[in-house]
Amino acid sequence: MRPVRGRYELGSATADLGFEALSNNDSLSGHEAKEVLHSLRHATNGGLVFLYLKAPFGIAGRQCLDMSVGDSDLEELGMTPRDVLSVTRSLRTGASGRTILAYLSEDIQQRVAAEPIPEEAGPGVLRDSGKFLNSLAEIRDVGYGIGRQECMKDWNSCAAPIIHRDTVMGAVLLLKPCTVMPEVPESVIDRTVTAGRDLSALGGWTTEP
């Protein structure tokens, strides 16, 4: 928009356009990134793998960019493929949400911690805001997040950050039924962290926060 007199002014939609351009970057939406997701799924014997990016600027949320789920019917997760790919989800719950939030500013962390718990959250969601905030510091220390029936009932998860220089851009998430993965083993953690590093490395990215 251009005022009657003076320079052009960039509207709020400019940030959304920038995010859209980033989301369509070949480094994350191309064949190489998809192969990273497939490799993580196969290496962990058939987990469900999702690639999340931060939601458009100004919104503390996450948005699914891609996935590797094999022949799984996503309706067993209570959502359709359209929902997964298009719906912005809260950072207040889930290993991927907390992993992204762990690398954001303290102000944003405090704001998200004060948000209501999403209705669709699982029984393992961290309802106490103090424990929730402490979990973010732990994620920063170890470099990954663990969710125990946090996003949804009967599913455990592991997430690792995707970093662009000194900015977190998203997270890679592995989900498995808690009957199959009652505790997240070190091998799954290692594979998930490696996938996060591989995705961060695409296009000259770095894993260092």
Results as ranks from 00 to 15, higher is better:
Gln109Ile: 03
Lys34Leu: 11
Asp141Val: 08
Asp73Trp: 12
Thr80Tyr: 10
Glu138Lys: 10
Val125Phe: 07
Lys34Val: 04
Arg2Trp: 05
Glu32Tyr: 01
Leu10Lys: 09
Gly143Phe: 02
Leu53Arg: 01
Ile139Lys: 00
Pro185Ser: 12
Cys178Ala: 11
Ala15Gln: 14
Leu136Arg: 02
Glu119Ile: 03
Thr179Ala: 14
Arg127Val: 06
Ala33Phe: 01
Cys158His: 02
Phe50Glu: 01
Ser187Met: 10
Leu85Val: 01
Gly6Pro: 15
Leu133Tyr: 04
Met181Cys: 14
Pro56Met: 02
Ser27Arg: 13
Ser135Tyr: 02
Leu101Glu: 05
Thr99Gly: 06
Ala195Gly: 10
Glu119Asn: 03
Glu32Thr: 13
Met1Glu: 13
Asp154Ser: 15
Ile139Ala: 07
Phe57Pro: 03
Arg191Ser: 15
Glu183Trp: 01
Arg165Ala: 15
Arg197Gly: 10
Ile108Gly: 10
His164Gln: 11
Asp141Leu: 07
Arg127Thr: 12
Val112Leu: 03
Val142Gly: 07
Gly203Tyr: 05
Val184Tyr: 00
Ser105Cys: 09
Pro161Gln: 08
Ser129Arg: 15
Glu20Trp: 08
Tyr144Val: 04
Leu175Ser: 04
Leu133Trp: 05
Val87Ala: 06
Ala121Gln: 05
Glu9Leu: 15
Leu40Trp: 04
Asp66Thr: 00
Glu32Met: 09
Glu32Pro: 02
His42Thr: 11
Pro118His: 03
Ala95Ser: 15
Thr194Tyr: 00
Leu199Trp: 04
Cys158Gly: 03
Val172Cys: 10
Leu199Gly: 02
Ser129Lys: 12
Ser39Met: 03
Thr179Ser: 15
Ala195Met: 08
Pro161Thr: 00
Arg98Lys: 14
Gly61Ala: 11
Thr99Glu: 07
Lys153Asn: 09
Gly204Lys: 12
Trp205Asp: 08
Leu17Glu: 12
Ser96Tyr: 02
Ala15His: 13
Glu183His: 11
His31Arg: 14
Ser105Gly: 13
Phe57Tyr: 09
Pro116Phe: 10
Ile100Leu: 11
Ser23Asp: 06
Val168Arg: 06
Met79Pro: 05
Phe132Arg: 11
Lys153Glu: 13
Leu53Ser: 05
Val180Arg: 14
Glu186Ile: 04
Arg148Met: 15
Arg148His: 12
Glu150Ile: 00
Gly203Leu: 03
Leu48Trp: 02
His164Asp: 07
Gly47Thr: 00
Ile189Met: 00
Ser96His: 05
Ala160Asn: 06
Lys131Leu: 10
Ala55Gln: 06
Thr206Arg: 15
Pro161Val: 00
Phe57Gly: 08
Leu74Trp: 08
Thr167Val: 14
Leu10Gln: 13
Ala55Met: 08
Ala171Met: 09
Ile117Ala: 11
Arg2Tyr: 05
Pro118Glu: 04
Gly61Ser: 09
Asn25Cys: 07
Tyr52Ile: 07
Ile117Ser: 10
Arg127Gly: 15
Ala95Gly: 13
Arg62Ile: 11
Glu76Leu: 14
